[in-house]
Simulated assay, not measured.
Amino acid sequence: MPPAEPGTRLDLGRIRAARAVIDPRFLDTPLYECDALGQRLGCTVSVKLETANPVRSFKARGTELVTSLLADQGRPEVVCASAGNLGQALAWSGRRRGLGVTVVAARRAPAVKLDRIRALGAELELVAGDFDQARERAAELARQRGVRLVEDSLDLETCEGAATIGLELAAGTPAFDTVLIALGGGAMATGVGHVMKTLLPEVEVICVQPHGAPAMTRSWHAREVVTTDTTDTIADGVAGRRPIPAVLADLLAVADDAVLVEEASIVTGLRLLLEHAGLVAEPSAALGVAAVLEDPDRFAGRHVVTVVCGGNVDLGPYRRWVGL
């Protein structure tokens, strides 16, 4: 019998089919055991590296699906809100297929991400406030123009594109018992989690979020949507305040735990990834390492995979964080 899938909106058949749509440059990313990092953290650590691609994040796995669908439908334009990485990925995928792309982002988003969105030919609109204000403006623009609004984590393409990471983990070696996933809107956590609980149900799926942006983690523990008024974290890629109910329902079906980490641990995680793995990572990508740093006894003797999900950093802040 085929494996039983958890009760989410996602479908393993569609996830497998997605690999034929996503540009190969975003597939089969490196997965390797990093001895030096493991020795420092006191457990076996493997890295799933999602920065070795044209947009330096995992987001294009989802935007490739979205733009392929829109191109097939003859729809010429698309809008999204982004903390930076989704916008960059949508701009890349849209340009590849001749689609007009508008990205709405917060003015305070990292300049390197905003500059790259512009360089890829997207129209960029900046708003005061944070990601949730950008999401409201993007929805308004989509209504005014009558075009597709891409909503990260709500749209299944973003989740099932990210879920292809899980297929690669399940097919990789050596065996591992824990996967640590950055938790923001939930696309990667629900996608990878769905595949793990279908193909490798014995693997513990742990989602990690900063204390300064805890809405989805609090919601997971409460089993209902919990919003926050503000966010305060250097991990801009996961700094949402308003979880989406459908995404939370998916997360509840696949995540074994959701934990919060301190900013100091994120900064240390960035430094360890650079010093012991030679990786320039953005703060969201260091959340898995931060989780091990804060609870070493939990992970001692285990083999964890941490997904390094993005590497778009403003060099000024990054140098301060890692002490360069």
Rank of each mutant, 00 (worst) to 15 (best):
R145M: 02
R137Y: 06
D152T: 05
G161Y: 05
G166T: 12
T178V: 15
A182Q: 14
T173R: 14
R148A: 13
L149Y: 12
A163L: 13
L154R: 14
A187Y: 01
G184K: 08
V147I: 08
A175T: 13
S153P: 07
A175C: 04
E157I: 00
D152R: 00
V147F: 03
E168K: 09
A142N: 10
C159V: 11
R145A: 08
L156A: 14
R137C: 06
L156N: 05
G184H: 02
R137F: 06
A170K: 07
R135H: 13
V150M: 10
H194A: 13
R137D: 07
A171E: 15
H194E: 10
T164C: 09
G191V: 08
L169Y: 05
V192Y: 11
G161L: 09
R137K: 15
E168N: 07
G172Y: 02
E140P: 06
D152N: 15
F176M: 10
A182C: 10
A163E: 12
M188K: 01
P174A: 09
L156S: 12
E157C: 08
E140Q: 15
A163M: 08
L169E: 09
E157W: 13
M188Y: 00
T190K: 05
M196Q: 08
V195L: 13
S153W: 01
L156G: 13
L154D: 11
A171F: 03
I165L: 14
A189Q: 02
I181V: 15
R143Y: 03
G191E: 10
H194Q: 12
Q144C: 01
G191R: 06
G184F: 07
V192L: 12
C159H: 04
R145N: 08
E136W: 01
S153T: 14
T158K: 02
L149V: 02
A142V: 08
F176S: 04
D177I: 04
L169T: 09
V147M: 06
G161M: 07
L154Y: 13
G161D: 09
I181G: 03
G172R: 05
A175S: 15
T164S: 12
M188R: 01
A182V: 00
G191I: 07
